[in-house]
Nucleic acid binder design. Structure first.
Lengths: 193, 193
DNA sequence: TTTTATTTGAAATGATCGTTTCAAAATTAA
DNA sequence: TTAATTTTGAAACGATCATTTCAAATAAAA
């Protein structure tokens, strides 16, 4: 029987994701990926077909990792409004982790590749729908508990929040002052109260 | 006396800007630029030094063009709150113009290049400061006229609006439904009222 | 040990990258 | 016409791009 795959695929994906996240798709070369993983060029092509496919796998992994962290933390909140605030808190923590914030891989990817790459656009659309329905559910719950006003319905508030999440991630790239980011978060929350 | 520069530099910049806006910096090749302008490769290097410098000129041109359009239209508004709404209306119009919205060149550029290119980051920082003080001025005026609430001061609302502008431009890349964009705009305005 | 399949190394593929070079053509003032 | 200078064309630069190739090394089951 054959030799089995020895390297840790999850670790490789994590390493590659970091490079893509840092430099974006186009500025990342296969040489960068070889260097970051220590893997052989052939092994990469054996396991991931090509650069584009590898990138897609990184996107999927990034999304599911974010969702895991998010749903874990959302279990610890008292109510829906706090949950929404927590989303932005997670972002602020993420932004403060490193000297230079790289933004959100998915937002950056939309900016770089949407409308030029149908498979990427499809993935981003699906991700967007997932996020919108999560937000809509939270808003609905918050409205039922009278924590969130009913000036607008849950669908529209979800859209508003989704747009704000993207803006927040973009803003964090150039603004690292936590108090400014907190201020933006509080204004967003204020809208719902 | 010598032959003088014959081609229209502004037209060339406009043509090149369109390519950069569509594909981003890294995915745009010099060949793309040669094709888009019809200019000779040598002429481009003679006039613009290199790709990076040409890109910077496009950014500057894009910014000043946006500012010109904005300040023209802002003169026709009744009050500060309407002015702020108009900013988002301009974006919606821009997004609806083409089948596929390309987003904002400056936002895309921040996503692609900020923190990797100091000259780009400096430009974006300056642009951000300009935008923030424009917004702060508008909010201040709106608050003086009791059109904008004083739950937060002008500086914080300016930050909030700036973040929302970026998010709005990102959202427009994947969402082309005008009514959804209008809804987001109205929610943002609602926050100020 | 032999068989089977995978990983590896290293080189090579052809294409494209940004940029340079330079002589020829073009243009305009003197 | 002559002199000055720019635009042009086309080729070439070396580097790097994503991807392929394939024999050698490796590892585990038979």
């Amino acid at each position: 029987m054959p030799k089995v795959e020895t390297f840790d695929k999850d670790l490789i994906i994590a390493q590659v994701t970091e490079v893509f996240h840092d430099k974006g798709f186009n500025a990342t070369s296969m040489q960068d990926i070889v260097d970051a993983t220590g893997l052989n060029r052939s092994s990469i092509y054996n396991s991931f077909e090509n650069k584009h496919n590898l990138f897609l796998e990184c996107l999927k992994n990034y999304k599911s990792k974010c969702n895991t962290i998010l749903s874990e933390k959302l279990n610890q909140t008292k109510n829906a409004l706090e949950s929404i605030g927590l989303i932005f808190d997670i972002y602020i923590a993420e932004m403060s982790k490193e000297e230079q914030d790289k933004g959100c891989l998915l937002v950056n990817c939309a900016s770089e590749m949407a409308n030029h790459d149908i498979s990427i656009t499809n993935f981003l659309q699906k991700n967007q729908n997932d996020m919108l329905s999560l937000l809509e559910g939270l808003v609905k719950k918050g409205q039922e508990n009278n924590l969130i006003n009913t000036k607008r319905d849950a669908t529209n508030y979800a859209l508003y929040l989704y747009s704000n999440m993207q803006g927040f991630r973009m803003t964090g790239i150039l603004i690292s002052d936590t108090s400014k980011l907190e201020s933006i978060k509080n204004t967003i929350i204020q809208t719902l109260q």
